[in-house]
């Protein structure tokens, strides 16, 4: 669900742990979204910080906000302040690397690499746009573009004919209206790994995951609900 107007509570809000909507709240939302996309439980998370994130991440609590997001805390959750200690107790190993040299073309950017106990991992790149708003721009080697402001369905699949038709037919079955849909693929030609990202106006039911996974080219299904 998503609104297309500036609300009273966009202006008087968000309710958030300080000090900065872009450096704290936005960073938290990127990590929270990344955690939603990752199937499985991360035991190791590496954060690479770019732009002004790299310069001021400690003083803005960007690091604690990121770890809080991985723990599933939203930006108004005071547990963010103690997220390091909580992550340590939960056995999640976190590391931070400020990268001041690489030009990623945007002021506040973070790469999050999550790794599960079985070794599978996922890289998610997010940009903090200001006012707590964010955009996810990369998953592994694939450039993507979505905000997490809608109900979002992320399907990892091989780029083969029929996959998209299958996905949309399942959505139609559940009477889910698609707001935006885009297929992102790693290679220029067909057959390689791809992500289809669908931002929907309606709530995504849990059973959708198993239904989609039954299709031979579909490898992962993740859903983000706000």
């Amino acid at each position: 669900m998503k609104k297309n107007y500036i609300s009273l509570f966009d202006v008087i809000g968000p309710v958030m742990v300080g000090p900065s909507s872009s450096h704290t709240s936005g960073a938290n939302s990127i990590a929270w979204t990344a955690r939603q996309i990752f199937s499985g439980t991360p035991v190791k998370v590496d954060f690479t910080l770019y732009g002004s994130f790299a310069d001021t991440f400690r003083g803005h609590g960007t690091d604690r906000a990121l770890v809080g997001g991985i723990l599933g805390y939203r930006s108004d959750d005071v547990r963010i302040r103690n997220s390091f200690e909580i992550a340590k107790e939960a056995g999640i190993l976190c590391s931070f690397t400020p990268d001041r040299d690489t030009d990623v073309g945007f002021p506040n950017v973070v790469d999050i690499v999550m790794e599960a106990a079985d070794g599978h991992s996922l890289l998610v790149r997010g940009e903090s746009l200001g006012g707590g708003r964010i955009r996810i721009t990369r998953m592994n080697n694939i450039k993507v573009d979505f905000t997490g402001e809608y109900s979002t369905l992320i399907v990892g699949h091989r780029d083969e004919a029929g996959t998209l038709a299958f996905i949309t037919s399942r959505l139609a079955n559940h009477e889910i209206n698609i707001a935006f849909m885009k297929l992102f693929r790693e290679k220029k030609e067909r057959g390689g790994p791809a992500f289809t990202v669908i931002e929907a106006d309606d709530f995504l039911p849990e059973e959708l995951e198993d239904e989609l996974l039954s299709y031979p080219t579909i490898e992962s299904v993740d859903m983000i609900e706000l």
Partner: peptide, 21 residues
């Protein structure tokens, strides 16, 4: 002070200016 020490505030309109309103 609350904001700068990672306490909970209401951005109004931003976190940096959250004290005025």
């Amino acid at each position: 002070e609350t904001n700068a020490s990672m306490g909970v505030i209401v951005a109004a309109p931003t976190a940096g200016s959250a004290g005025v309103v």
